[in-house]
């Protein structure tokens, strides 16, 4: 059945790539809409919430576009996929920009990767964490058809630390182990970029479009 998928547009980052990747895997009859319109978001069957850039700017943009309520409602009511900053802003507070209050839908913090040296070569741990890293998957419908420990494309300097560990749906090692995917009911949110993760990413987006939580 044809469905409508909204990519929430609040001026933060590469929405075009996200929309293109979803169009690529969506059925011909599906409608993919990039919008900041609260009514459209409320009317959509599925919502994708991407985001790039600094935490403070993201929160300011969410405020300017009056999306706070629309995001909360979507998270509470329909299949919702958060990507990158679209994962981080769901928590309470980020260390970024001398401390930034986030949406607070889940208890927990967003912290920076530590300044340290890698054991293997003695060079500094590079931040941003940029490139293809493995995700240790916890059982979930959105990992369907994707091999355990598959690689996805990451680019970020901060990562989430949810208080409730039952939210964890994926973990990745970089310096230390961090949470790279979270799931609860109809919400799934990832730190990596499925829209830039070649076949594995497209499979995850396909799974999202077929997901019946």
């Amino acid at each position: 059945m044809a469905q409508s998928i909204v990519v929430i547009d609040y001026g933060m980052g590469n929405l075009r790539s996200v929309a293109k990747a979803i169009e690529h895997v969506a059925a011909a009859a599906d409608e993919v809409l990039v919008t900041d319109d609260a009514e459209r978001i409320a009317a959509a069957d599925r919502v994708v919430f991407p985001g790039q850039g600094a935490a403070r700017d993201c929160m300011a943009a969410i405020g300017e576009h009056h999306l706070n309520q629309a995001i909360r409602q979507a998270v509470a009511s329909k299949p919702f996929l958060g990507i990158c900053m679209g994962l981080q802003v769901l928590l309470q507070r980020s260390e970024e920009n001398e401390g930034t209050d986030l949406l607070g839908l889940f208890a927990g913090q967003v912290v920076r990767f530590p300044h340290e040296h890698r054991a293997e070569d003695g060079l500094p741990l590079k931040v941003p964490h940029m490139g293809w890293n493995q995700v240790r998957q916890h059982e979930h419908a959105l990992w369907s058809g994707i091999a355990q420990d598959s690689r996805f494309y990451f680019v970020h300097s901060y990562h989430v630390v949810p208080q409730d560990t039952s939210l964890i749906s994926g973990e990745t090692d970089y310096g230390h182990r961090f949470v790279s995917a979270m799931a609860r009911d109809n919400l799934f949110a990832v730190q990596f970029h499925p829209e830039k993760s070649a076949a594995n990413g497209l499979q995850l987006l396909t799974n999202f479009l077929h997901w019946k939580p």
């Binding site: 293109k20 690529h24 494309y153 829209e195 830039k196 070649a198 497209l202």
Partner: peptide, 8 residues
Amino acid sequence: VASEVFIP
């Protein structure tokens, strides 16, 4: 390219 190649 961006509409059919899904890598950075």
